[in-house]
Every structure is written in C-alpha cells, then in structure tokens.
C-alpha cells in the first residue's frame, strides 16, 4: 500500500481538527494500518491529551527536525493499538521553530514506515498552517454547520488549492439533526453547495466526545458512540470502501421514530 500524508485542517479553531485526527487515526489502526499522528500545533499541543498519551512524551517534533533525537525516539507507540504512533508537538516553542521544508522532509521520512501519516494542523493561516500542509498529498477540511466555520473552510480550501492540494475532502462535524429538522441549522447540501468540494463524511454532535476526551480514549473505541461510529465509517471510506454517507437529517433512533409516529397520528 502506498503511504499517504493527509493534513486535517479547518482554518477556524475549535471545530474538531484534533478530535478528527485522533479518531480517524485510531480507527485506521484498528483496521491494522500503520498510522502516525503528527501534531503540528506547536505551542498549543493537544493531540497527546486527546489520545491519552501525554505522560509518555520525552521528545517532540521540534527535537526531531532539529536532530536532537532520532525520529524513532520521538515517536510514541500507542500500546492499545498495534501500529499506532504519535509525534507530539513542542509545547514551549512557537510555530516558527519548524520550516515547511523541514516538515516535508519529516513526512517523507515517515512514509517509509507508515501507511497513513495524519497531520493535525493548527488553527489559522500563518506559518503553522503552511508547515502542516507542506508535505501533504491530500487534505481533509473539517467544518461545523455554522456561518463562521464554513466561511473559514472556504478560505482554507482556496489556500489549499493555491498550494496544489486540489482534492480536499470535507468532514462536517457536530451536526445537530434536531436543529436541521426545525430549520435552524444548515444541512449537508447547503454546505456542499457553498463549498463545492467532495464530502468525506458527517459526524453528529455527541456528548461522548467530551467523555472520551476526558478519559483520553478516542470515541471510535466506544461502540455506543454515534460520533465514534461516524468516524469509523469515514476511516473505511479513506481505505477506499464505498459506503454511503449518513446525513443524520432523519431521526434514526427508536425514541425519535416513536415521536414521529405520535405526531403523524395526531
């Protein structure tokens, strides 16, 4: 299998880049892929805590690119899943501690040992963004169904295209089906019409994400989590499986169906 470097980006902060990176990476590793998660948010690292690996950090990405340690020493092996690794960001430096050129060399070196190199991009469009996309083959753009997030996603898609990444795919995160049904949230079609890029998947709003982040266990490990299930489906799509995207516009649990039937009877 040819290795792929995929940057997960969004422009706006807080829309779920890190959560998406952690869950897709874990999910791919659960399917026996060799995966490395690269946190490029230097100064504001978080992928380590979302993954529950914060206590095992010795070296970081800046140490690796500056030759303070070997690449192998910088990688943290996730003991829960064979083949899953994390390269953490540095916490005490800033985004200029790495150059796009160094980042490209780093991802190329990682290609030797991994099937998927998932790069968690910082918010913003400055050097951190330019570093994160430098070595990428493809991009996943994460957006929430709200005006500010979609606007920033549009800007990011433009910047990705200008950098030669023309096949960005969209993950719509934190969709609230109830709000869509009552006409208070843009639906998937609205967002796709505006951004005109391919849809990779839709992740519903899910309290499980907070719980799993509290615990440091990605939601894909939790079989009851709706968001976790959505991320597992996205990972399968990344592997080339053709499975339909669930839009979450229609109620799909028993309670909602029951309510719907009651409404119709009235």
């Amino acid at each position: 299998m040819k290795s792929r470097v995929i940057v997960i980006t969004s422009g706006k902060g807080g829309v779920g880049k890190t959560t998406t990176t952690a869950n897709l990476g874990t999910s791919l590793a659960m399917m026996d892929k060799r995966v490395v998660l690269v946190d490029t948010d230097i100064g504001l690292r978080n992928l380590d805590v979302v993954m529950g690996l914060e206590n095992r950090i010795v070296f970081d990405i800046v140490d690796v690119v500056n030759g303070k340690c070997k690449l192998k020493q910088g990688l943290i092996k996730d003991k829960r899943f064979e083949g899953l690794h994390l390269l953490p960001a540095a916490q005490t430096k800033d985004k200029t501690a790495i150059t796009p050129h160094q980042m490209k060399n780093l991802t190329n070196e990682l290609r030797q040992d991994f099937d998927f190199i998932l790069v968690d991009c910082p918010a913003g469009i400055e050097q951190g963004f330019r570093n994160a996309i430098a070595g990428a083959d493809d991009a996943i753009v994460v957006a929430m169904p709200e005006v500010s997030s979609v606007r920033d996603a549009d800007r990011i898609i433009g910047l990705l295209e200008a950098a030669g990444l023309r096949n960005s795919q969209l993950v719509v995160n934190r969709l609230r089906s109830k709000m869509v049904r009552r006409g208070d949230m843009m639906d998937i079609k609205d967002i796709l019409d505006i951004l005109s890029i391919d849809l990779l998947g839709v992740v519903p709003e899910d309290e499980c994400i907070v719980v799993s982040t509290n615990r440091g266990e990605p939601a894909v490990m939790e079989s009851a989590s709706r968001a976790g299930a959505a991320y597992r489906r996205i990972a399968r799509r990344m592997m080339g499986e053709e499975i339909p995207v669930i839009s979450f516009d229609e109620p799909e649990n028993l309670f909602y169906r029951f309510k719907k039937i009651l409404k119709m009877a009235r």
């Binding site: 869509v180 006409g183 843009m186 639906d187």
Partner: peptide, 20 residues
Amino acid sequence: ENAGSRDIARERLRLVLIHD
C-alpha cells in the same frame, strides 16, 4: 414551521463569500 435561521445563514454566507 418557524422560518428558521438556516435560510438566513445560507444567504449571509453566500454574500460574504462573494466578497471573500
């Protein structure tokens, strides 16, 4: 149905993105 804010969001985005 309440005229939801979805349509407003869509319309505002369309205009702002022309400028952007």
